[in-house]
Design a protein around this nucleic acid. Structure first.
Lengths: 177, 177
DNA sequence: GACGACATGTAAAGAGTTACATGATTAT
DNA sequence: ATAATCATGTAACTCTTTACATGTCGTC
């Protein structure tokens, strides 16, 4: 009875503390988004599925008249999570970056378009770097590894920004040969 | 009549020169894989779809008794590609990395497991760095941007490897506090 | 009263992977 | 001979996104 990665992500989030679906989404968007995005369309069905499998338990916690279901991990869920977490097998790091595909085939276009595209990519990474920094300031005192991986995100976007800024500079200097 | 990213990727590959589906897969695996993976299961249906739309043309080029269909881009296809290529709008850089999700929730496990996981991630990036280097040597004299982006791939995997090697070192020094 | 955050869900469409099936050619 | 590479495709499945639908609570 294998779970999807999103399933394990939910289990991991609930091991830290009981959370609502909305709450898990917050964690995913603030801290995990860099290397694994999750949408509500996956999240709520997955919570039901995990509850049906007995890996998590639902509890109604309405705030006034506003409905709210808080889930907590069960011993079975903890076991499934531990099994998954201890797996050291190599898994690929998949990237999907439409802007890089565009750039890859940009030898079609004139030099100034190439420079503009490389610059736009660099800007995107600068913006992401700033986002990571503000996230780091907002969230303090959570699990140490969350902090570490936010640091990696910042580092990744900074080095990528520098690389594409340099590419734009080099393409610009070369001119329209 | 919008195309999928894979559709534009095919168009881009065929703008360089006429190619068979198999040939496009080779280019994708050697040079584009880092930021956009393509499988045969997408490729062949997409070639049919693009041919039906009149953006590419099929031509039979059997090698002896071995069937072979070579596609070439049409003027309509060139136009569609140029439109797509000139778009500077920001698009997200999506990463899906199961090993990083594991590491993110690894505060569950003991310190030695965390060190092992960080080390395994570093090793993966070192291996990818070597793959990129050997690819760079094998393929020479193609479009300049292909070379540039292979350079980015090498740079990305090297810096990632260094970062996770450093993390493993730090976690190890801290011990099992 | 309006807006933003909190809160939960479904349905349909689209994207992508995997496994399977087939067969020819070339190099060892 | 036999393994690797060239070559094309389909079917089933899984994953993921997007759009929609609904309603509450707190603050300006």
């Amino acid at each position: 009875m294998e779970l999807s990665n999103t399933g394990y992500l939910v289990l991991g989030a609930l091991r830290e503390r009981p959370r609502s679906g909305y709450d898990i989404k917050q964690l995913a968007d603030k801290a995990i988004r860099l290397f694994w995005a999750v949408s509500f369309g996956q999240l709520y069905p997955e919570l039901k599925h995990l509850a049906d499998s007995g890996l998590i338990e639902a509890e109604a916690h309405p705030t006034g008249g506003r409905q709210r279901t808080v889930y907590r991990i069960t011993p079975m869920g903890e076991e499934a999570l531990a099994d998954w977490a201890s797996d050291l097998e190599e898994r690929p790091c998949e990237i999907r970056d439409e802007m890089l595909v565009r750039l890859f085939f940009s030898d079609v276009a004139d030099r100034s378009s190439q420079v503009a595209l490389a610059g736009a990519i660099a800007q995107r990474h600068r913006r992401m770097e700033r986002t990571m920094q503000s996230l780091r300031q907002k969230t303090g005192g959570d699990e140490p590894m969350h902090e570490e991986l936010r640091g990696f995100g910042e580092h990744f976007h900074r080095t990528a920004a520098e690389w594409f800024e340099d590419l734009a500079r080099r393409l610009n200097e070369e001119g329209s040969r």
